[in-house]
Design a protein around this nucleic acid. Structure first.
Lengths: 364, 364
DNA sequence: GTTGAGGTAGTGTCCGCACACGAAAATTAA
DNA sequence: TTAATTTTCGTGTGCGGACACTACCTCAAC
């Protein structure tokens, strides 16, 4: 291992001078600077991050704003776990992460949580900008205070509000349109000529709208490009529709349309939909859904669902923290978008995915 | 952040004493020990890994034994890249990794490379035990010298040689049988009743035999369990068969067996096989292969191949180093097996997979 | 009462780097 | 030539912890 001292000795200068060159801190004559830089390259010197971060030891405050999860909707549990794991790891680098929760169906609680957050005077923020209008306010304040922030799972790209645009360092999440395309491909692959398709949309929370819509667009786009004459049906349900209503509508539809062989559910509620479908219909159907919630995985294991497209939300949460931490500690600028993989999960490979997540649970 | 000094002050002892308690190094009276432990828990003290690893700064020698890659066979490039990336990361922890290559078709070069390796007196070894008999010798010596080792990509489990069994800390790689099952499921999903299946086996290197065989077994096992009356054909080619021979045999077969609609190639040579198949056959076929070699990905992008099952070999290489490093530095015992995910790759999600690997290439 | 062994606990140094302070050298001004 | 500046660079300290070395204390044996 090459150290600063090694370089200094080689260049006949002191460690301090090498340090100045390394950090472009100036005060070094051009001659010695080039000399040192040459030796640096030649010896392939790389800063020892361990020692570096120990020596810097600034204390960073990080704050996270995410929806609260509950038994009804476990979706946000995964990213939270990822956030927890990452927070633990970066704590050694002097970064303390405070997490603030809000009710995903209540914009007011979103603002309220943010106000609590901002009082802690964070140096950086990771947030899920679930509500557009309220995010406007939040972002204006963050821009004003020059607090860097990144978006997690939900993007707000291109949305410029009167003068204050989104200057988020990065967006970490899935590309819903492409996920839709993938669902189209999978649907296509497990169908034969003449089969018809059904999209079942449920809207439990308004905010999902954007992602769900994009997935449907992607799905249709795939068929537009590859099987233009495919017959794609669509059913929509509202929050107000009860289980029995949904059940009746779907089964009536499926009885009338026997050629429908593939169902795509663009939300994370595929298992709920499956429960409403009668068994004899299920037998002829291939069903594709999104997100590996416990209920969905259950349906996968029972071979009711053929494919789940996962967005690895644990990893999203994890990455968001790591990314912002690297920015705070090493000023490492993240790419504008960090798309998470489109992971295809089946009954057969489920147990090998999410190993990081499970490992984390076991350790804690 | 709580430091050792904080604890020491609180307990009216010196930092050294706290340190002794933390590491169970003895020499502390029961009274003070319990007192310190209480404060430790109460204040939720956690060792600062950054400072810790800096202070320990033992120099660890790590050695890696893997097959050399060439333009013909790029498979081993990926794990090597992962190994490189991880080596770089752990170098800050005082771990120096020396990589030794061997010719994957020559057992002698395997032994020769190992002899060079052992001369460097490594503290731990990561190896690909490609040749069973020669690995015997190697493992005997490693056991004797009490050098810990882990297996990468190829397992040697259960193989007890006269007295000296494999004491590898861990195996990092894919479960080939399960990968085969998955390929069966995918084949099944993209077929309809009455379709027939074809397995095309090529053996370029003898060592692949085990993995390929397991994949075929898994494939068959899937159908045994789910579609017992499925008609599964099999074609085998030898290293000696030239391109034209293969081409003729395959196309003749496909002409005769028009009901074959899915081809599974259990090796990483699916793109090669595709090249031999005539276009009019290709149109009716769904083809499933393994490993994301550049050529295979090319075929995937052209929609010739429907699915590739990837073993994320970059990650395998990366993980192997990280795992052994954690063992050396923190004495963290890995699990006996670290199976890598069975990743399903299609034309639509390829660009989102392997992001780590691409990022690494871009940085270097 | 002196000596020595064994058990406890404090001190100092180092890991590699960041950064402040001030010294030396180089340049300019007087 | 000397004083005043400015540029360039060396030194020292500390980040939090690991560990060797040393000092102290107790208690028993002679």
């Amino acid at each position: 291992m090459i150290t600063i001292k090694d370089i200094a000795k080689e260049a006949n200068v002191s460690a301090g001078t090498v340090d100045r060159v390394l950090h472009n801190r100036g005060g070094v004559s051009p001659k010695t600077e080039t000399k040192i830089k040459k030796i640096l390259k030649q010896k392939k010197f790389k800063i020892n991050l361990i020692a570096s971060s120990l020596a810097m030891k600034k204390h960073h405050n990080l704050a996270t704003l995410i929806p609260q999860y509950d038994e009804q909707n476990l979706f946000w549990k995964s990213p939270y776990s990822g956030i927890q794991k990452a927070s633990q790891e970066v704590s050694a680098y002097g970064i303390e992460n405070k997490v603030f929760f809000f009710d995903q169906s209540d914009p007011k609680s979103y603002l309220k949580a943010f106000r609590k957050l901002i009082k802690t005077e964070p140096d950086a923020v990771v947030m899920v900008p679930l509500f557009v209008k309220e995010s406007h306010e939040i972002i204006k304040l963050l821009n004003l205070k020059k607090i860097p922030y990144i978006f997690l799972n939900v993007d707000l790209k291109g949305l410029a509000f009167g003068g204050s645009s989104c200057n988020n360092l990065s967006y970490i999440g899935q590309k819903s349109f492409d996920a839709g395309i993938l669902s189209g491909k999978l649907s296509h692959l497990c169908s034969k000529n003449g089969d018809e398709f059904l999209i079942v949309m449920t809207r439990k929370n308004i905010h999902d709208y954007e992602a769900i819509n994009e997935r449907v667009k992607g799905f249709k786009s795939y068929f537009q490009d590859n099987v233009p004459d495919a017959h794609i049906h669509q059913l929509k349900f509202d929050q107000s529709d009860g289980f029995e209503t949904v059940k009746k509508k779907i089964n009536t539809f499926l009885t009338k349309n026997q050629r429908v062989k593939v169902i795509m559910v663009p939300s994370s509620r595929v298992s709920y939909i499956c429960k409403t479908i009668e068994k004899d219909h299920l037998l002829r159907l291939k069903i594709i859904g999104f997100d590996t919630t416990p209920q969905n995985v259950e349906a996968l294991k029972k071979s009711i669902v053929a494919f789940l497209i996962s967005q690895k939300s644990f990893n999203q949460g994890y990455k968001s923290i790591i990314t912002i931490a690297n920015y705070m500690v090493y000023k490492e600028m993240p790419t504008n978008e960090i798309p998470t993989p489109l992971e295809i999960i089946t009954k057969e490979n489920y147990k090998y995915s999410h190993s990081e997540e499970r490992k984390y649970y076991n350790e804690n």
